[in-house]
Design a protein around this nucleic acid. Sequence first.
DNA 1: CTGATCTACAACCATTTGGTTGTAGAATAG
DNA 2: CTATTCTACAACCAAATGGTTGTAGATCAG
Lengths: 119, 119
Amino acid sequence: MVVDQLDDAGIDRLFQALADPTRRDIVRRVTLGEYSVSGLAALYAMSFAAVQKHVAVLERASLVSKEKRGREQIVRGNHEGLQNVRRLLDEYEEIWRQRAARIADILAEEPKNNRRVPQ
Amino acid sequence: MVVDQLDDAGIDRLFQALADPTRRDIVRRVTLGEYSVSGLAALYAMSFAAVQKHVAVLERASLVSKEKRGREQIVRGNHEGLQNVRRLLDEYEEIWRQRAARIADILAEEPKNNRRVPQ
DNA sequence: CTGATCTACAACCATTTGGTTGTAGAATAG
DNA sequence: CTATTCTACAACCAAATGGTTGTAGATCAG
């Protein structure tokens, strides 16, 4: 339900969560289909507890969500989380756009006074 | 010069590098203007060496590049690096699109034989 | 030349991370 | 009821991370 609390700590958690190949693979998998935690654990050459921790990291970063179903915990992808990362990246691209615009302005600048740029 | 070696380790480095607020701020700054390492260091409440390490992390992730100028080292933003991150995020969005399409297919599915889905 | 500045890097330290094993509770199967 | 499965969590460990101080080499200013 987290509306849009993208403070530094939240952004840290998002990027940190994506900085591991196992976790990125989990994100891909649970986006395309449903997996229980043990179903995911069966896919990787590591212990159940390790996968459980990875899922917990992704959950705290709001990249996936869990829902109890019987004795299983179903993991699903959380599109909002990914969209937030994307939005962040868009902001950086926007900064680049601003920079490009500023450079274009400088190049288009016409010297109104007689002071010339040396060289 | 790294053409497009986006292996797991490279992706790890990209996301890991962005998972720190100081480093994200450095990326913003050096995108908009030029900074020497010590120029950057003056901006943060930490030692020169700490900032130097942050820049090194960003450089290994190809998010910034350094260029020696006199006794200074000028840090600049590397647009390619950011574009790579963005491209990665686009891939995840594409996976979501596929999922949405798949779900739409299932909903649109018409039973051609008489075998009905139970319930 | 001398001193100041900028950088690089090593050594160290506390905390976090990514993994393990083990224990225990809750839900299902037989 | 009993055994199995699925999950949660604690305790532990090695390695990485983010910070520090200190030393030393280059370059610039006077």
